[in-house]
């Protein structure tokens, strides 16, 4: 129970700035909203080619945007680590008797909560543009994206902690990786349009399975096998990355 209690404390501290100014939540959403407004309409005439039900491309596009938001937001959580390392906060917390696992879990929990809130807002915005989605499916989709947020935030934390002695490399590294992951996940355009070699490459990207699962969920196909596959991939990814992140927090300790 110490782990839960400690994680809660770390998360509560991390949430404070958000409580004080909830508008920061919206700032991070600027980019996905741009995609929604300036890119989404381009897909509308192509809906049939994606196999989007009733030619409604929003049902295809919005779930992809959620994954993009996960890559851009919790996936960049490492910047917070670097910032708090500079101000001495990370080290100060490592000297307290807080559980080492909680140091990571509390932080990524905050990222997951934040992302779920942002995703809900994005779905509502999508609805204004014409998204029609299954409600239980969309709720499950938010849960799944929360899991992905934990995984991506854990990776980002671990990478940042390992790059503290060359932190100037963190931004370029993460932006390269994120572009690669976005392109190979089929979140903008479906991988069904891709030549074989590109589709195979995308199969190496765990997030491509999550994108497929999210789309099925939003379309209300909850029993679709891609939902199960995507969920299992997300669970495995989260377990591995949280383990890695925790080990990174422990690495230097006595």
């Amino acid at each position: 129970m110490k782990l839960l209690h400690d994680s809660w404390l770390v998360c509560a501290r991390a949430m404070r700035p958000l409580w004080r100014s909830p508008m920061t939540l919206a700032f991070a959403m600027f980019q996905p909203v741009l995609f929604l407004v300036l890119f989404g309409p381009l897909l509308q005439p192509l809906g049939d080619r994606f196999g989007a039900p009733d030619g409604n491309s929003w049902q295809f596009f919005v779930p992809g945007l959620l994954v993009q938001l996960a890559i851009l937001s919790p996936g960049m959580a490492g910047f917070g680590v670097i910032f708090e390392h500079r101000s001495g906060v990370i080290e100060r917390m490592r000297v307290t008797p807080l559980s080492r696992t909680a140091l990571l879990l509390g932080r990524v929990a905050k990222d997951a909560v934040t992302l779920i809130a942002q995703s809900a807002l994005l779905v509502v915005a999508g609805a204004l543009f014409g998204l029609r989605a299954s409600v239980p499916g969309a709720l499950l989709g938010l849960l799944l994206i929360g899991l992905v947020a934990i995984a991506l935030a854990a990776v980002s934390n671990a990478v940042a902690l390992r790059m503290l002695d060359r932190e100037w490399m963190f931004a370029p590294t993460m932006s390269q990786i994120s572009v690669l992951v976005v392109l190979l996940s089929g979140l903008l355009l479906p991988m069904s349009l891709a030549p074989d070699w590109l589709r195979w490459l995308s199969m190496a990207n765990p997030l491509s399975y999550v994108v497929d699962a999210e789309r099925a969920l939003f379309a209300g196909r909850i029993a679709d096998p891609v939902v199960l596959t995507g969920s299992l991939v997300a669970v495995a990814l989260t377990a591995t990355t949280v383990l890695w992140g925790t080990r990174t927090y422990q690495r230097q300790d006595s």
């Binding site: 404070r16 700035p17 500079r86 101000s87 001495g88 906060v89 080290e91 100060r92 307290t96």
Partner: peptide, 18 residues
């Protein structure tokens, strides 16, 4: 050890936005 010691690092301990 952690429960019984206090440590104040040279680089400080505080986040500015709190």
């Amino acid at each position: 050890v952690r429960e019984r010691i206090g440590y104040v690092a040279q680089s400080g301990t505080l986040a500015f936005d709190y």
